[in-house]
Structure formats: structure tokens, C-alpha cells
Design a protein around this nucleic acid. Structure first.
Lengths: 213, 213
DNA sequence: TATTGTGAAGCCTTTCACAGCA
DNA sequence: TGCTGTGAAAGGCTTCACAATA
């Protein structure tokens, strides 16, 4: 099987999920896992798991399963998260400051290296106090400059909806490669900048659809 | 076309997205939208849009498009969000308190009617101050009782990862129908309780995969 | 005329079933 | 023996292309 060839979008989503389950197994000191076990943990079919892994070569051990440590590394290689990714958060309100200190980012190679707000002075004190340490919040006006200085490749948008598209435009201008939008309106960008809109209400909507039956 | 028959999962996801775009159009005073326009906004194929809407009958107007107001109502009916859904948030840290005041929930029929923490006394003052109004935070020990008293059907988990599964178990015991898990480890529940795990890092992972090419 | 609604084709994804191998 | 890797079958979803019609 060709290594690192085109991988279906659905597989990409699952790979990220497998990682979370592998972390869980690792924390229980498991060294090896079978496709059946992992499949049960992730609610997918065992053959699906094997097919997903087959996209990056043969390295399971027949009769035994997959070595968790190796598997994690392979998946991270595929996803491109074996290196550090430098991130800016724009909009340091309640959600933004939660993201700023979100522990799971630190465990991954996701580094938040800049935080922007339209009112950095007003926000700085409040946030520093909440976090119990001084935090540097910069004015949005300096975004373009700072993004370039600090080699930031990804922007996370946590501003109010009416500002979201403006901030997206700013980030595009600053030449980030990708945007994760957590504000509740879709934002758009030119082809060369990848966008992920993540709506909390959409997660609830699809949950509710299945509850309603 | 049979009304409200089985709808593909992918369609359900898109319906929720169309809603967000329809809100946007409505805020610009548009009354009617064509499948082509909506498709462009949502990055899908126009035929896809029409097929998605065809699941709940024929009600577009040929030569003209879909009436936005009607369309929104139809979609909400399908998803089951035309009625109020009562929600509890468990874990009032940074993320939990951001969710507590997340404005987009208020605009939908999602009502957060209880907030729980393991340290309600410590948290209450801090949060009330941040929100500028008194907020009632309850001890997790009272969860089961309060969930029943207040007819809560959905729980949102925003506790640290090591507590997430315990809280999920509590919610199941309290007989919620669905759980939205925002903590960074997958949680599990019996078949009859629907789970949505929403990981911020997974959104970044899939973004990064496409950035890495 | 413009745009919907939809059968049919095409494509992609999942699952099955079993050969292959440690 | 137990579990992976995978061709083939089945299933599901998306897109095309055009008839239908306001």
C-alpha cells in the first residue's frame, strides 16, 4: 500500500480519535492493542481500523496486534502533528481565555504563542488574575506583525460573531495557513487558507436529532 | 418522498450548518435563497442541498428558490430543536464558565438550567464576579436529584479529563438522554444514552493534516 | 426563464470473509 | 492459534443531467 497517499477525510477524523484512545490505553500501561479492542473503544468496525492503518503500511503484528507507542507515532506522522504548531488566539473573552489555558493543547504540540484582543489593557489584568500569572495580551492592530514575527501558522477565532469575519480576514492577511473558528457564525477565506468552523450548537443539534427519535 | 424517514448522518450535520448560513442571510434581510447560493456559502454541491431538503418534502419554489423563514422552521423541526432543551453543565472551570454564558445557546432553544462543580463555594464567587451577576453553582453530589427536578435531558461535561468518565456515569444514572463531552478524553455510556465527544485538538488535527500537504 | 426535484450513474466508504503470517 | 492485511461485495452518499413547473 502506497505510503502517505491520499487518505479519505473520514479516516483522518478517525485517526485523531484513535490517538485519544491510545493515550487512554497507554495511561493504563498497555503496550499492545488489537484492532478489535481499539474498534470497540472507538465504536467502529475492526476491519475499518485495520484498513485505516493500512494506509500507512503494514506494521501490525499478526496474532498479536499493534504496538501502541509505534502506532501513536505513525498516526502523528500522518497527521503532521509530530512537530510543533504555533497558534494565535484572537478574542480573549470567556471562551478565549479558556482556550488560552486549555491543558490538552500543551500536551500536544500545539503552542499558543500569542493572544490578541481589541481591549488588551482591560483584559490583561482580569485574565492574569484568573490564571494566577501574568499574561501578555496584544492589541489586534499588531496581529499581522506579531503573527509574522512569531512564525504563527494557525489562528483560533474566539471573538463575538459580528467580528468573526473581520478577524478571519486579518488572519488571512497575516498569512496564517489555517483557521479554527469557534465563533458561532461561519467564516470564509481564500482557497489557500484552510478553515474549520466548530460550532457548539451544531454538536448539540446532531445530538438532539438522535434524541428526538 | 417520505417525510422524516431515515436521514443520513452527513445530512444531519449539513442541516445544522445550513441553519447557520440561513441566519446570516436573514440578518441581511434576504427572504429567499436558491440551492446554488446556499451551496456556495456552505461549500457543498447545489444538488446536494436540494437532496438534503428533499428528505422532508417538496417545498422549494421552482424558478425562485426556498423561503428562508419556512426553510429554517422545517430544518428545526427535522432536527428536533423547535422546542426547548434543558441542559446541565458539569465542571465550572474556565471552559465550563465560558459555556455557561455562551450567547449562542440563548439564541437557540438550548437552556442551561443547572451548573455543577465539586467546589461550588469556591467557584460561585469567582464566576458571579466574572459574569457580573449571581450564579448558582451546585455541588455534584446533588446532580442526580436536581437533574430530575429540573427535567434536564442533556449534560455537558467540562471537567478535567480524569473526572470525565465519572461525571458521565453520574449523568447516566441521573437519566439524561444525551451527553456532550468537551473534556479531552472519550467517555462512554450505555446504548440508550447518546454521546458526542467534541475534542478541540481533533479539530486542529484534521486542520493540520490538510496544512501539511 | 430560472430553479427545483429526482432517477440513474459514479464514486467513495464500509464491511465481509478469508488468505497469510508471527 | 489469533490476529493482521486485503480483494471483493455491499452499501451509502454525492453528483450529474434533465424533466417538471412556478
Amino acid at each position: 500500500m502506497a505510503k502517505y497517499s491520499k487518505i479519505p477525510e473520514a479516516t483522518v477524523r478517525r485517526l485523531s480519535n484513535y490517538l485519544k484512545c491510545l493515550d487512554e490505553l497507554e495511561s493504563k500501561n498497555e503496550k499492545v492493542v488489537s484492532s478489535a479492542t481499539l474498534a470497540a473503544m472507538c465504536n467502529v468496525n475492526p476491519a475499518q481500523v485495520r484498513k485505516d492503518f493500512a494506509y500507512f503500511g503494514e506494521f501490525g503484528v499478526r496474532g498479536m496486534g499493534y504496538r501502541i507507542k509505534d502506532l501513536k507515532n505513525h498516526i502523528k506522522d500522518i497527521l503532521g502533528i509530530n512537530r510543533e504548531w504555533r497558534i494565535a488566539v484572537v478574542g480573549i473573552g470567556n471562551l478565549g481565555s479558556a482556550i488560552l489555558v486549555y491543558k490538552d493543547f500543551l500536551k500536544q504540540n500545539y503552542k499558543i504563542v500569542a493572544a490578541f484582543d481589541i481591549d488588551p489593557v482591560g483584559v490583561t489584568g482580569r485574565i492574569s488574575e484568573r490564571l494566577g500569572k501574568p499574561v501578555e495580551i496584544l492589541h489586534v492592530d499588531s496581529l499581522k506583525e506579531v503573527v509574522k514575527q512569531r512564525n504563527i501558522e494557525i489562528g483560533i477565532i474566539t471573538v463575538p460573531p459580528q467580528e468573526a469575519q473581520k478577524v478571519a480576514d486579518l488572519l488571512v492577511e497575516a498569512e496564517v495557513k489555517g483557521i479554527l473558528n469557534l465563533s458561532p457564525v461561519p467564516v470564509r477565506a481564500p482557497e489557500h487558507v484552510k478553515i474549520r468552523n466548530l460550532f457548539f450548537t451544531s454538536a448539540l443539534d446532531s445530538l438532539v436529532y438522535y434524541l428526538s427519535k
